[in-house]
């Protein structure tokens, strides 16, 4: 049960973050590197300027969070490595999906009588787990495929593994966009998520673009040691424990510091071992 023979490697050519007091990569980098204090605050993601006004009006906070993260990582890869956003494969990961939209539909259905039509067409098409990826492809007029996934508390590990495999299997640069937003009442009590948080990476085959680090991952069916993915900065621990996508904070700190690191992420009853090497 301990075999680990997968040697997946990729270059990180783009990165992004959005969360409470972490408003984009450039603004967050000194915080993540420990050079500035972490001061959490309510940080609603901006309306996505990359969408035409008609589409933009149809987006809620969850899609906005995802698009903010996708856009910054893709821009980052475009300027570092000349990879146009529409040329990237896409992996979107979220455990909660658009709980705000789904919760609204559940409220409406609970109040519906007989054949009353209570679900709006826009809410319905926004309820699908791949809504954010759909808006992203509309925004970038991109035809590259997207896979959209969830794996409960293992969502960050699953999405990272999936994106690494996409790069390794087909040799294509891939956008990884992960996001989780708190569920609305009354679901929030059953699946607590402390704040909205998203993280993005653009992963490229080795030798493509200008990577800031090389990442290697391997799956193992033994759980990690407790706290093996904890951020260096104790002030970030509550966020890392309260939003499954914020399990990425350790990796983001490592990139901000420009250091190498090894850590393990929780993945169901196993783990994903992760090795970051800034020297390439």
């Amino acid at each position: 049960m301990t075999r680990q023979r997968s040697g997946l490697a990729a270059g990180i050519v783009g990165v992004s973050v959005w969360g409470p007091g972490l408003e984009g990569w450039d603004a967050s980098r000194p915080i993540l590197a420990g050079a500035a204090p972490y001061e959490p605050r309510h940080s609603p993601p901006p309306a996505p300027a990359i969408l035409a006004p008609t589409e933009r009006r149809r987006t809620g906070p969850v899609v906005r969070l995802a698009l903010t993260v996708a856009h910054e990582a893709a821009q980052n890869a475009a300027s570092s490595s000349g990879l146009p956003p529409g040329s990237l494969r896409n992996v979107f990961g979220s455990s909660n999906g658009d709980g705000v939209v789904v919760g609204g539909i559940l409220d409406a259905l609970a109040g519906a009588r007989g054949n009353e039509r209570v679900v709006s067409p826009t809410a319905f098409h926004n309820s699908v787990h791949n809504a954010a990826a759909g808006y992203w492809s509309i925004a970038t007029a991109g035809r590259q495929p997207a896979t959209c996934l969830g794996a409960h508390d293992g969502t960050w590990a699953a999405a990272l593994l999936k994106a690494m495999v996409e790069v390794a299997a087909d040799g294509e640069a891939t956008l990884l966009c992960c996001y989780d937003h708190p569920l609305p009442t009354p679901l929030a009590a059953l699946r607590p998520t402390v704040s909205a948080f998203g993280a993005g990476l653009v992963l490229a085959p080795l030798g493509v673009g200008q990577p800031m680090a090389t990442v290697r991952v391997g799956y193992c069916a033994i759980p990690p040691a407790p706290g093996a993915w904890a951020p260096r900065n104790p002030a970030l621990h509550a966020l890392a424990a309260g939003n499954v996508v914020a399990q990425s904070l350790r990796l983001l700190e490592t990139l901000a510091l420009g250091e190498s690191d090894r850590h393990a992420l929780p993945y169901l009853d196993g783990r994903l071992d992760l090795e970051l090497d800034v020297a390439g």
Binding site: H129, A146, T147, G154, A158, L161
Partner: peptide, 11 residues
């Protein structure tokens, strides 16, 4: 099973 797992949701 104990391998990696994920649920894909592309409508």
């Amino acid at each position: 099973l104990r391998g990696p797992a994920l649920v894909v949701s592309t409508a």
